[in-house]
């Protein structure tokens, strides 16, 4: 592409040129919805009641307006979660986009020392910036952070779980997922000896707990 002309510069004022009079904004490849799970209370009749849709957005600028004006993960009560999912996908196993899928996850047990706000921010930026996967893979459905008594956990949810999907063999499918795991590990700045673990949602459901045996690691 050629160098920007004077007209382009005049017409295309970004938020960097003018935070209050910008004329163009940065589109995201997907629309995203931020969800929040508050800690359950004894009046809840089901888990679903604690899950609330917060806001849907489709530009970089709006993402920062939200991030800069919402409670930081480090300030959330125990048993809270943030979920950032592509629009139309509920952050639940039962959603059609998730029910054959799984998640990459890592638990941070040193709650006092790990920079959870930065790690969750970087995970969200990798999701909305679409750098968690190769562009043709269409695997990522959302990202999640869980605040628990003994740990923080960050996860990346995928549409499939390595058994083949979207015309892919199970080997090709697994390669796509492992690539996502590798990139996720980089986002979290984990060392060589640390591993992110992938598990299928249905395995977790059958095991009756979210601590299913890892299917693969990266």
């Amino acid at each position: 592409s050629s160098a920007p002309s004077q007209d382009d510069i005049r017409d295309q004022l970004t938020v960097f040129h003018s935070p209050e009079n910008f004329t163009v904004k940065h589109p995201l490849m997907n629309k995203w919805t931020l969800w929040f799970t508050r800690p359950p209370n004894k009046n809840d009749t089901s888990w679903h009641e604690a899950l609330k849709e917060v806001v849907t957005f489709d530009s970089v600028e709006e993402f920062w307006g939200i991030y800069n004006n919402i409670t930081k993960t480090s300030d959330l009560a125990l048993k809270s979660d943030y979920h950032l999912f592509k629009v139309g996908i509920r952050p639940e196993w039962e959603d059609p986009a998730n029910k054959h899928g799984g998640k990459w996850a890592y638990q941070f047990k040193e709650k006092r020392t790990i920079p959870i706000d930065e790690l969750w921010l970087h995970t969200m930026l990798a999701a909305i910036g679409e750098t968690l996967e190769k562009e043709t893979d269409h695997e990522v459905t959302g990202v999640v952070v869980n605040v628990r008594k003994g740990f923080y956990r960050i996860g990346v949810w995928t549409r499939s779980s390595g058994t083949g999907s979207q015309g892919k063999t199970s080997k090709e499918n697994r390669e796509s997922l492992v690539e996502i795991g590798r990139r996720f590990k980089e986002v979290l700045k984990l060392g060589e000896r640390e591993q992110v673990e992938f598990s299928g949602h249905s395995d977790s459901a059958n095991a009756g707990s979210s601590r299913a045996k890892a299917k693969f690691v990266a």
Partner: peptide
């Protein structure tokens, strides 16, 4: 206001 009226690049 700018966010609402800005065009997508």
């Amino acid at each position: 206001t700018a966010l609402r009226s800005a065009r997508f690049i």
